[in-house]
């Protein structure tokens, strides 16, 4: 219990420091947040246009897609505003920059992940919540379940980023592969799940676990289904576990970069 409290204190300290460092470049931070907000909003505009012309796609309406975008954007944002290094993991491994993290008397992975905050992710997180509240107008139980599901999606994105980023231990230059896999995962996550059938559907429950971002959380919110919410969390923690396993298996193969580095 003491260990957990200690890690939560560490996380709180990192969040505070990271936020302060983002505020040091206030203009750039705000502009990145706004840019991401606009980027996400364009997609909502696309779906509104699409559903104006075709009101239902395999049982999904415009509110379902807005919910989907709200969950995916907020989940992705929440994951990387607190654990921004998950996005840069392959580069860190490839350049041998893990050395400095290995020296700390803390578990390497959580400490490393907390080390940076992604500025644009704050825009994503804010966008999802604002859009859900304004467009979907949820009652209190729906809003609470939505907030819980954002956490589940955030866990899944961290796990997936760690899993794909850890490929760098085995492949060397895994930057491009990791980015491509992450983009594929995000892209599949942001379209109505019923349009995918057969083998692709199996793929989206396993190797590219987009169904735990799109299908299950949206279904949980539509039907207030605690079972679907449970499956979402279970899937997310499985992906996180796979990511952790991959990282520590890979870490055994890690070779020091003999790199002089100073972290301020």
């Amino acid at each position: 219990m003491n260990g957990l409290t200690s890690y939560l204190k560490l996380a709180a300290a990192y969040i505070k420091i990271n936020f302060k460092s983002l505020l040091a470049y206030r203009g750039a931070f705000i502009s990145q947040m706004v840019a991401m907000f606009i980027n996400d909003f364009v997609w909502i505009a696309f779906w509104c246009l699409f559903f104006t012309r075709f009101p239902v796609v395999k049982g999904w309406g415009v509110n379902d897609v807005i919910t989907l975008w709200a969950i995916a954007a907020s989940g992705f944002g929440l994951a990387h505003m607190f654990m921004g290094n998950a996005l840069t993991l392959p580069g860190i491994i490839m350049r041998g920059e893990l050395d400095s993290w290995l020296l700390y008397p803390r578990a390497v992975l959580p400490h490393l992940l907390l080390g940076r905050s992604s500025a644009s992710s704050w825009g994503d997180a804010l966008f999802g919540i604002v859009v859900y509240v304004i467009f979907v107008k949820p009652d209190l139980p729906h809003l609470l379940l939505f907030l819980a599901l954002i956490c589940s999606v955030a866990v899944l994105f961290v796990g997936f980023s760690v899993f794909t980023g850890s490929l760098a231990f085995f492949m060397g230059s895994a930057d491009s592969v990791s980015v491509q896999l992450r983009i594929a995962m995000i892209t599949f996550s942001t379209y109505p799940s019923p349009i995918f059938q057969g083998f692709v559907k199996i793929l989206l429950f396993t190797l590219l676990p987009a169904m735990f971002v799109s299908h299950l959380p949206v279904s949980a919110l539509r039907n207030m289904s605690m079972l679907d919410a449970f499956y979402s969390f279970a899937g997310a923690f499985c992906v996180l576990f796979a990511g952790i396993l991959m990282f520590y298996l890979g870490l055994r193969r890690y070779e020091s970069g003999n790199l002089m580095e100073m972290r301020g």
Binding site: F54, K58, A184, T187, I195, V200
Partner: peptide, 20 residues
């Protein structure tokens, strides 16, 4: 690779839309 993903997704989306 991204182009492949996007085109596949849009194919699925439009297939469903034409059918419905």
């Amino acid at each position: 690779i991204f182009l492949f993903v996007v085109l596949y997704i849009f194919l699925c989306l439009w297939k469903v839309t034409y059918a419905e």
